[in-house]
């Protein structure tokens, strides 16, 4: 009898543990990871050698209406968030190969953070909105230049949520919905 009881208790206990484990995993996913280099794995080791660079592909607009890739070297940063930040900084600086930059002059990146679920929140200065020419085509170019540049270079970034001046906006400038995160749009790119 005693052993039976023990077995039942043991079984119940292991079930409890299992449920707790499942729960902790699901709860863990909800938590956001800030820009602090906490969740870094492989790239952390190379933090000593800051002079190293890495190649990223930026997407700019061309006269054919499509986004075109442009390779750029950025300093190798230890954290994913810093790499992503550097990439967006480079992107808004404009093309070096004669493509069209779909960003108003003076656009700056304010902040960028990535959640564990792979959503990058990219916060731009108010210039992005205020100086934007508006128009469906222009807005689509701006948004997917950002989205594709981030998702293409960083596997961990699955989606991009664009913020302006620290907050969410309904639209960029009257057309494209900014209330949800974007996935990349390969159909807008010509390689």
């Amino acid at each position: 009898m005693e052993t039976k009881k023990l077995i039942i208790l043991g079984a119940l206990f292991s079930l409890l543990i299992l449920l707790l484990v499942i729960f902790f995993i699901t709860v863990g996913e909800e938590n956001q990871v800030s820009t602090s280099p906490k969740s870094l794995s492989s790239s952390e080791k190379s933090s000593e050698e800051t002079m190293e660079t890495q190649k990223v592909v930026l997407f700019y607009l061309s006269e054919d209406g499509y986004l075109h890739p442009e390779e750029r070297e950025i300093p190798l940063h230890p954290s994913l968030a810093d790499q992503a930040k550097q990439t967006v900084h480079e992107l808004v600086r404009g093309s070096e190969e004669g493509y069209i930059s779909p960003f108003p002059v003076g656009t700056n990146l304010r902040e960028l953070y990535i959640t564990e679920k792979g959503v990058a929140y990219v916060d731009f200065s108010i210039t992005l909105r205020e100086k934007h020419p508006s128009g469906s085509t222009a807005e689509v170019s701006t948004i997917f230049s950002i989205v594709n540049s981030l998702t293409h270079n960083f596997e961990q970034i699955k989606k991009v949520h664009v913020l302006v001046d620290g907050g969410g906006r309904q639209t960029l400038k009257g057309h494209v919905d900014l209330s949800r995160a974007f996935s990349s749009r390969e159909d807008l790119v010509v390689w």
């Binding site: 607009l61 930059s101 020419p133 085509t137 170019s141 996935s183």
Partner: peptide
């Protein structure tokens, strides 16, 4: 009904859009 604008100077013509499911 809208009138379009682009960063490209030569952009011209009509573009008719329907909603893209911005979702995975």
């Amino acid at each position: 009904i809208h009138a379009n604008s682009s960063f490209r100077q030569e952009a011209r013509g009509s573009e008719v859009y329907f909603l893209s499911l911005n979702a995975t």
